[in-house]
Structures are given as C-alpha cells and as structure tokens.
C-alpha cells in the first residue's frame, strides 16, 4: 500500500489525463478504507457494553459496515472507539494507544462521558472532561449510552467523512469533528434506504462527467489542444 501511495501519483502526473487515474485511485482508496474499518478493542466504561459488545454481536451485525474485525493491538486498528469516561490515570495510556495506531486513523467518541465528562463534569476529581482533551476526535455520538442504531449512524458519518475527506495526495489532512446526532424519528428503514442509496451511487461511476467537473479540466483541454491536436 505504501508503495502505491508513494510512487503512483508521481508517475501518473506525467501521462496526459493521468490525473483521472489518480482521482480514481483516491476514490478507490477512500472507498476501501471507509468500508474496512478495523476498530480497536478498547472499552473504558459502560458504553463499551453497548458499542463493542452489543453491536459486535450477531443481532446488530457490525459486519454489515465492514467494521467487525476488532483488533486487540493498536498497530492493526484504524478506528478507536472511545466508549466511556476516561479517568486521569487512563489518559496517558489512551494517548499512547492512539499514537501506536498507524495512519490513517480515526477516533469516535461515544456517549456523554467521552464527549464532555457527562455526569462527572462537576465535582469530580478523576474524570477527564472530554476525550478530545487527550486525542483528536473525528465523530461524536451523543447518548448515555447511545443505542446501537445511533452508533451505526455515527459509523456511517465517519465512513462518509472518509470517502469525501482524506486523499492519497493529502494524507493526514483532517476535517473538523462532526457531531453525529441521530435525528429524531429515523427508523431502521430510513437507514437501510440510505445505505442502499449510498451503495447505488458508488456503483455508478461517470468518468467523463467526473473529469469535466474537476478544476483542472480546462487546462487539460488546453494542453491537449496545443500538444496533441496540432494540424
């Protein structure tokens, strides 16, 4: 993977129209990253029972989203789900786990305690007020604890973010954190429809129009007109 990222864009820049290939490679990499998130088995409090055990079990079926391969070592994990409050003694350990994860890596903070300290916000000597004081957080999922549906909504938000965000040309560029609150009145059918629409949209690639919509399209036409189509 590192070989492709390091060499292929540089090679492709020299070929006319090669940037189409790079863009497609971006799209392919982001698509594959979004659909093969490997979470870290890391639960600090009661949210972990909902987030990692209930959703990982067969009834909720986390593997629908390609995120069921929970790893026990941070070196093999992509996404860290902070499920629960972080005590001050845990904070340096959590930072070390985060720094051991390979880039690209993402962090989801689920539950009130991981977002702000929750009920331990006041008059507490041992809880970190929000996990984002220790590690950068990409997606916040509110709830106490969030239902598995809300967690899936946050996971879909993260996948959407990965698909639109980080590219092979700008690795490590982060978007702002997203508050992924599940809106009121959303049923399972709506989520299914959204997944279906997302899959449908991803399976149709209009290369011509995608290239025409890009900012370098005019330059490419100009280059081709001056260099290739000389009478």
């Amino acid at each position: 993977m590192a070989l492709i990222i390091d060499t292929l864009p540089g090679l492709a820049e020299k070929i006319p129209g090669g940037q189409v290939l790079v863009t497609s490679l971006d799209w392919l990499l982001n698509w594959s990253r979004a659909n093969s998130l490997w979470p870290l088995s890391f639960g600090t409090k009661c949210c972990a029972i909902e987030m990692l055990m209930a959703t990982g079990a067969s009834h909720q079926d986390l593997s629908r989203f390609g995120a069921e391969v929970a790893r026990n070592t941070p070196r093999q994990a992509d996404v860290m789900v902070i499920a629960g409050a972080i005590v001050k003694k845990m904070a340096p350990r959590m930072r070390m786990l985060y720094e051991q994860m390979a880039e690209p890596r993402w962090v989801m903070a689920t539950g009130s305690c991981a977002i702000s300290g929750g009920p331990f916000m006041y008059n507490s000597y041992h809880i970190v007020r929000g996990a984002d004081e220790v590690v950068p957080v990409d997606v916040y999922v509110p709830g106490c604890p969030p239902r598995p549906e809300a967690f899936f909504w946050g996971l879909l938000t993260l996948q959407r973010m990965i698909r639109r965000g980080e590219t092979v040309r700008a690795p490590g560029v982060r978007r702002k954190p997203v508050l992924s609150a599940l809106p009121q009145g959303i049923a399972v059918q709506d989520i299914r429809a959204e997944i279906h629409a997302a899959l449908e949209a991803e399976n149709v690639v209009d290369v011509e129009n995608a290239a025409a919509a890009s900012p370098w399209h005019g330059k490419l036409r100009q280059w081709m007109a001056t260099n290739l189509y000389k009478p």
């Binding site: 916000m121 006041y122 008059n123 507490s124 000597y125 041992h126 007020r129």
Partner: peptide, 14 residues
C-alpha cells in the same frame, strides 16, 4: 486526598 470534604481541584468547575 480527593475524598476529603475540603479537597479542591482545578478541574472542579463549581
């Protein structure tokens, strides 16, 4: 010693 009644901490906002 945090469980003493007169314990104060900079994180205790109140």
């Amino acid at each position: 010693f945090p469980l003493r009644k007169d314990y104060r901490d900079p994180d205790m906002l109140e």
